[in-house]
């Protein structure tokens, strides 16, 4: 193998790398950078301008005392009893429905009574298909 065609060894490669170009001199790097720095605010400076955020004191929700909890339950029970008594009458239901729907159903409530054997009328067999 011709010596010229042999691959480069490490020493030879280093000799060639030593010939690589060097970066050109930079002029005014510092001045240009200082100009750019003037437009940038350091983090520390930004911190100086920040008004500290005061965390609001959390409202302490104390659990209700057992006595007051009992009063609430008793009131709810009493209210449900009263409503139950009121609604036990048909009129009460009708009034409640009228109040909610705005319809005059009070007179028809009586018809809502459950049907029994008395209500069975004669069947006209001729009209049956």
């Amino acid at each position: 193998m011709n010596k010229q065609q042999e691959p480069l060894n490490d020493v030879e490669l280093d000799q060639l790398l030593a010939t690589a170009s060097l970066p050109p001199q930079i002029n005014g790097f510092e001045e240009k950078l200082l100009g750019r720095m003037a437009n940038v605010r350091p983090v520390a400076m930004l911190r100086d301008n920040v008004v500290p955020f005061v965390r609001p004191v959390a409202i302490n929700h104390k659990p209700a005392k057992p006595v007051s909890r009992g009063i609430g339950i008793a009131a709810a029970l009493a209210a449900s009893l009263i409503i139950g008594i009121l609604l036990s009458d048909n009129a009460g239901v009708s009034e409640l429905v009228d109040g909610v729907t705005g319809l005059q159903t009070s007179g028809q409530v009586a018809d809502l009574a459950p049907a029994g054997l008395d209500d069975i009328g004669p069947v006209d067999e001729e009209n049956q298909s």
């Binding site: 010596k3 010229q4 065609q5 042999e6 691959p7 480069l8 490490d10 030879e12 490669l13 000799q15 060639l16 790398l17 010939t19």
Partner: peptide, 20 residues
């Protein structure tokens, strides 16, 4: 990197060394 450089420079590398 070094292996790749040797490949890229190839046989020309030896001639370059002579110039150096």
């Amino acid at each position: 990197a070094r292996r790749r450089l040797k490949e890229i420079l190839g046989p020309e590398g030896k001639e370059m060394l002579l110039a150096v």
